[in-house]
Simulated scan of single mutants.
Amino acid sequence: MFGPVAAAQDVLIRDATVHTVSARGSLQHADVLVRGGLIAAVGPGLSAPAGVQVVEAGGRPLTPALFAGITEIGIEEVSGEASTVDSHLKLGEQPLRPEFDVTLAYNPASVLVPVARVEGLGFTALGATTGGGFVAGQGGVLRLDGSLDPIGPRALYLRLGAEAAELTGQSRAAQWMLLQQMVDEARGRIAADSPHALLTPAGRRTLAGYLAGQGRIIVAVDRASDIRQLLRWAQREKVRIAIAGGAEAWQLATELAAAQVPVFVDALGNLPASFDQLGATLENAARLQRAGVPVSFAQREDVSHNARKIRQLAGNAVAHGLPWADGLAGLTRVPAQVLGVADRIGSIEPGMQADLVLWEGDPLDVAHYAEQVWLGGQAMPMRSRQTELRDRYLHRARVR
């Protein structure tokens, strides 16, 4: 009902303020030519080949399609109905299962896909959650164009700190003990047939791949001391990590920058919601960026049904010191780079996927909206179940 059209369209978007989110920066009165689902050319005064549709932008902003954050779009339909939630694994006393891959349950026909898409969101990091273990499992990048399969490498999701303590014997120290044992198993330092082994053969192979740098480990963690331990662990084991949340990450900005560890910031976090977040501040993103840390964004609540709020996170970070261009990059290029898909999406350059959004106004200001979204050159229907219900009942109200 809300899916994309059958084939990519050739289109020339003329006279836009093109925010390329690349070394070219923002281009005034520029054109973008799309051919065969890819960006063919970017610049002023481009000619429209015969038969190519022309969209007059009138100087309005054109950006890459935005990152929806780390979500459960397509693997959670109704959070209160367990039969519609596929984001976590519960196996009781069974071994931890890093091989668990939530992308296998992704439903591109989920009503949440167009709800996010009409807001200018074009891709998401589908994340495993920690309902079954502090090592949650794997996720991947999904484009919200109706595709079934993820793009790019998988990511492994962990949670550390107080929020995961109930999954590790009520001790955050036990998290490091268990994590080190899993590493030792994956590296062959503990025999696979040991009666004390934590991992299955598939789990050992999966974790070994991440230890060899074949994917990124994304860790939900907030407290500065836990982040410091995480940096030491990542350096010792030579693994690529990213941080999600990071309420107190700004306290280690220099160390994070030196290690080139990106942070998915909750830019609305300014209160100590837990003892792990006593140092929360609205300037978190700005302080990290000034130190040279790659900054993107991720919500803590309403991550799937209200993915649109991620624009508010970026705008809020800009209001508290993050440069505007870095706010937009945090919703486009930076997450694409962190997740290993920047060769395809996240910027407006020739050869990239034509995942584009034409905006009515500033994309980081929630008072403005997306006028048209193209994914792979396809003009997406700018409607969802929510918009159709709105229009239906507004019409009824007028009739009465």
Score class of each variant (00 low, 15 high):
Asp184Lys: 15
Val219Pro: 01
Arg228Ile: 04
Gly245Asn: 11
Val221Ile: 15
Gly213Cys: 07
Ala244Met: 14
Ile190Gly: 08
Leu199Pro: 10
Ala202Gln: 13
Pro195Gly: 07
Ile190Phe: 05
Ile241Met: 13
Asp193Arg: 04
Arg187His: 07
Arg232Asn: 14
Val219Trp: 03
Arg236Leu: 13
Gly203Thr: 04
Arg228Thr: 14
Ala220Asp: 03
Ile241Gly: 12
Gly203Asn: 05
Ile217Ser: 09
Arg240Trp: 10
Arg187Gly: 01
Ala224Ser: 14
Ala192Asp: 07
Val221Thr: 12
Ile243Cys: 14
Gln214Arg: 13
Leu230Ala: 11
Gln235Tyr: 01
Leu199Gly: 08
Ser225Lys: 14
Gly215Gln: 03
Ala202His: 07
Gly188Ala: 10
Ile190Glu: 02
Gly215Asp: 01
Leu230Thr: 11
Leu231Asp: 07
Gly188Thr: 04
Tyr210Met: 05
Ile227Ser: 13
Arg204Val: 02
Leu199His: 11
Ala186Lys: 09
Ala242Arg: 06
Ala202Phe: 01
Ala191Arg: 14
Arg232Ile: 13
Arg228Val: 10
Thr206Tyr: 00
Ala242His: 03
Leu230Tyr: 10
Ser194Leu: 04
Trp233Ala: 13
Gly213Ile: 06
Ala208Leu: 03
Arg204Asn: 06
Trp233Glu: 07
Ala212Gln: 08
Glu185Val: 05
Val239Cys: 12
Gly188Gln: 09
Ala220Ser: 12
Tyr210Leu: 07
Ala244Thr: 11
Leu211Arg: 01
Ala197Thr: 07
Leu198Tyr: 13
Gly215Asn: 01
Arg228Phe: 08
Asp226Met: 14
Leu231Asn: 10
Pro195Ala: 07
Ala234Pro: 05
Leu198Arg: 15
Ile190Tyr: 05
Gly188Val: 05
Arg228Pro: 00
Trp233Ser: 11
Ala186Glu: 09
Ile241Phe: 12
Ala212His: 01
Arg205Ala: 11
His196Thr: 12
Ala208Thr: 02
His196Tyr: 10
Ala191Pro: 02
Arg205Glu: 12
Ala212Ser: 08
Tyr210Asp: 06
Ala234Val: 05
Ser225Asp: 15
Ile190Thr: 07
Gly215Leu: 01
Pro195Phe: 05
Leu211Gly: 05
Thr200Ser: 15
Gln214Phe: 00
Gln229Asn: 15
Gly215Phe: 03
Ala191Glu: 10
Ala220Pro: 00
Leu199Asn: 11
Gly203Asp: 02
Asp193Ala: 09
Gln229Trp: 11
Arg232Gly: 11
Gln229Arg: 15
Ala197Gln: 08
